[in-house]
Design a protein around this nucleic acid. Structure first.
Lengths: 221, 221
DNA sequence: GATTATGTGGAGTAGGTATCTCCCCTTACT
DNA sequence: AGTAAGGGGAGATACCTACTCCACATAATC
């Protein structure tokens, strides 16, 4: 729960109003980055919090600092998910559950998606969290393969691509049908089975022609 | 082969050097839009062609005009692919072949990807080509389903999402391994079978840890 | 070869966006 | 009440992009 850099922050505590605003900023950042991605400006975040830009820059010297402060804990959530999944008995089911839950988090937070798949932001704590996840995911994959559920030629690095793909569907269709990614992920997972049975029941209906058209119209490359 | 708008262009032919430069611009646009997408500026295209910006703007009054002129024919290629596929006997194989070939085109041309999945550019001839493709793809899908190859809950609109997903892999990894999308597409297609057998052999090796890291570092959200 | 219509180059304009600073004013703490 | 800390937000700075303008160059024509 360290709030600032520095090994042992001496940190005279913030004045009460300042502390309140600091929290407001983090909450606002979570919402705004979540909806609009990391391209959102600190001005946007300030105004969304009902504060002036100066206030934000006083507390967080740069966008990078704010991003670090706010995504470190969200990343932890994903890591914890992986850790929990490793405890489950059914290795294939654990893999599937983890994938769904991680996608769920991604789908509701554009900033998280970008943080996890790009190195443009988050060089400190965020990067550590990412590093922590690599062996967890690797074990999850290997366990699911050993159990005969996951196709043996699937590599841990394919996990990143899978989330990239799901993320692209989210981005493409979120304005039209924010849950459509579930449909695509279900098909994707069907393609990952070592011994596929019948295709699984898709959890979401397809887009019709008008909806696809609408998605194309509001999506910007 | 009409070169200008207007139902019956009276069109005094261009001066020889002008016609040459017009072709140079189109060739340059193909390369630059292909590599960098539609966000490339007409300045970029001019310089890549070894010409001044003014020259480009004289011939193509706006980016939209240039995009129309240059992508209409590329789109036709995709449409022709679909038409050919409808002639093949094996409906599932035709569907698979078409999907691979279309993805091949997309993977080598970022501008084409953006044109096909967004409505931001290409309101005239390009839009007509898109409209022409809808029934073709629909029939391709229905035929593959009727033959028992393609899962029956797959919808024609899922085709767009599939190409969106493949496109996102291309964008993410093209600097590191420009053919990696083949691996992802193969898995995706395995998930589309109505009666899946064993997973297919993947046509491309996975990324290792360093390569994923590198992809993340150069990818910008 | 001279004349003229056509084409060219690229600095420059207009208009946008983003990050971050500065300084006057307000508020909390003692 | 006095003082140190915080807040607001216009504006400085530094980009970027689409597009224009016109002195100069070249091709076509006579």
């Amino acid at each position: 729960m360290a709030r600032d850099a520095g090994p042992a922050a001496p940190a005279r505590p913030l004045r009460r109003d300042a502390e309140l605003n600091r929290r407001r900023i983090l909450a606002s950042a979570r919402e705004v980055f979540g909806q609009r991605g990391l391209e959102a400006t600190l001005d946007d975040i300030a105004h969304h919090a009902g504060l002036g830009v100066g206030t934000v820059y006083r507390r967080f010297p740069s966008k990078e600092h704010l991003v670090e402060a706010m995504f470190a804990e969200r990343m932890e959530e994903v890591g914890d998910l992986a850790e929990q999944a490793l405890k489950a008995e059914d290795a294939w089911q654990a893999f599937v559950d983890f994938t769904w839950k991680a996608a769920e988090l991604h789908s509701s937070d554009r900033g998280l998606r970008e943080i996890m798949l790009s190195n443009k932001f988050g060089h400190n704590h965020v990067a550590e969290e990412k590093a922590r996840m690599v062996p967890l995911v690797t074990r999850l994959v290997e366990r699911a393969q050993a159990a005969g559920g996951l196709r043996p030629d699937f590599a841990p690095s394919d996990m990143a691509l899978l989330h990239m793909m799901v993320g692209s569907v989210v981005e493409f269709t979120c304005a039209v049908d924010p849950d459509l990614w579930r449909r695509s992920l279900a098909m994707l997972l069907d393609g990952l089975r070592a011994e596929p049975g019948k295709p699984s029941k898709l959890p979401h209906p397809p887009l019709d022609e008008d909806e696809i058209e609408a998605a194309m119209s509001c999506w910007r490359p």
